[in-house]
Design a protein around this nucleic acid. Structure first.
Lengths: 147, 147
DNA sequence: GTTGAAACCGTACGGGC
DNA sequence: GCCCGTACGGTTTCAAC
């Protein structure tokens, strides 16, 4: 039941309780209680408008792999990079590099500036892969069937 | 003005028109007109609940780079892969590989199955990088300052 | 862009299972 | 514990300006 609510609200974040109620076959009140609980437990972290990057002046996306220059140093790259608003995501990864970033900028020269900022802010080397075309992204997460 | 509305609604996708109206200093109706126009023009593509991947049984994320086995063949990998709901994003990239995927699964063995499915569906070789920890992701896109 | 009125929705509360 | 129904205040909608 909760799974179905999550699915609906992750497809349409502005769906009304009445609509959700119709979709899952519960009363509005019951849906509201479940939704509030899902939000309180952190299963639903919030709601976002999905924005077209081109429309807000960030048509160029890239992946940036990051490797600390001195592996002996304590490494707090994520905190050092958080203030750069071009960085949309930051993961630590298994592999040659330590972190994988996903970034969006307006133009190639902004990417150059960003890479320089990243290197300076976190004392790291970088390896950048430019995105040529995005076929799809941010697809709603389907609750996994396997338990 | 539109920029400010986009920023607000991308931080809180369920913000009411009344709240947006207060935030940008326009009447509720004016905000509604602008919001409808932004949606119609595709600047706002939709609204999503931000779901905790752990809570829906997909705690394991990975990047998968994809290279066609036969570069001479016409390549329609994205269409071939669209039906796999573990794939959250699919970009074509500049670099050694042709595509970069971002995927979420329940456990390592599901990743194994997924990689096999991808290889078969699209006749490609893959290179997978497991995500160890996500510091942040899906941060709201700030409209770029530079024009 | 604005105002205003009607329809709709979110919320809290009472009660039943 | 979970669910439903109702009533009220806030919200969305759409007309006229």
């Amino acid at each position: 039941m909760d799974v179905q609510i999550v699915r609906e609200v992750s497809r349409d974040g502005r769906a009304t309780l009445a609509h959700l109620s119709a979709a899952v076959g519960l009363s509005v009140s019951a849906v509201q209680t479940r939704l509030r609980r899902l939000e309180a437990r952190g299963a639903i972290r919030g709601y976002r408008a999905v924005v077209d990057p081109d429309a807000v002046g960030r048509p160029l996306a890239a992946f940036i792999e990051i490797t600390p220059l001195d592996p002996a140093q304590p490494d707090n790259a994520p905190e050092m990079l958080e203030h750069l608003d071009a960085i949309e995501a930051c993961h630590s990864i298994a592999g040659a590099a330590s972190y994988m970033l996903f970034v969006r900028v307006a133009a190639p020269r902004d990417l150059e500036v960003l890479i320089r900022d990243i290197r300076q802010a976190a004392s790291v080397s970088t390896r950048t892969t430019v995105v040529l075309q995005t076929f799809f992204e941010n697809r709603p997460i389907e609750p996994a069937l396997t338990r």
